[in-house]
């Protein structure tokens, strides 16, 4: 039988690489395992192209939101988590008020985390669908660009032509 290779491979676990994410809104810093942070396509691209220093600055995302994002990434980086566990954990993460959800969906979009974008969008859809459209305007900071006549016309279409179908 052939003998064992001369050069002993480094069998000890490789040192876990970490990244530091820093919210540029309130300068809060989060030390995260690299494989957790890499669920963000944006961060992955930075790391892959060697653009990432020791500290990765994250503009426009507050520490509070960043913590939620990291919680999501940690859950989904855990290989032993079952689909059911993840569903429950996701539901917990998005059980927030509408303004937090909007910050979260913007963060998910900026960091390019598809799953988080989806669950947050779903939750937002559920939260706004029963609200009066004036409230929705306020929540999304949308300016009403309808003239009163135009708005009445759209409303009339709904009343008479497009109504009554589930």
């Amino acid at each position: 039988m052939a003998s064992a290779p001369e050069n002993e491979k480094n069998a000890s676990a490789p040192e876990k690489k970490t990244l530091t994410l820093k919210s540029m809104i309130n300068n809060e810093e989060f030390v995260v395992d690299e494989h957790v942070a890499l669920q963000s396509v944006t961060i992955k691209n930075m790391v892959d192209s060697d653009c990432a220093g020791d500290v990765i600055p994250v503009p426009t995302i507050s520490g509070e939101i960043l913590a939620l994002v990291i919680e999501y990434c940690k859950n989904h980086a855990n290989p032993s988590a079952s689909e059911d566990d993840l569903k429950k954990a996701d539901a917990g993460i998005v059980a927030k008020d509408i303004y937090t959800l909007i910050d979260l969906v913007l963060a998910a979009n900026f960091l390019d985390i598809k799953g988080l974008l989806e669950v947050t969008s779903q939750k937002i859809a559920d939260s706004i669908k029963d609200l009066p459209h004036q409230d929705v305007r306020e929540i999304f900071g949308v300016e009403n660009d309808y003239t009163p006549e135009e708005e009445a016309a759209v409303r009339a279409e709904h009343d008479w032509a497009f109504e009554g179908f589930p």
Binding site: V105, L106, N109, L117, E118, S121, Q122, I124, A125, D126, I128, K129, D130, P132, H133, V136, R137, F140, V142, E143, N144, D145, Y146, E150, E151, V154, R155, H158, F162, E163, F165, P166
Partner: peptide, 24 residues
């Protein structure tokens, strides 16, 4: 993102209401 959110709104009545928010 709005498109993504809209994709989860399936009921015509809800969509009608949201189309009153703005022209976009």
């Amino acid at each position: 993102i709005l498109e993504q959110i809209f994709s989860y709104i399936t009921h015509c009545r809800d969509r009608n209401a949201l189309s009153l928010v703005s022209k976009t």
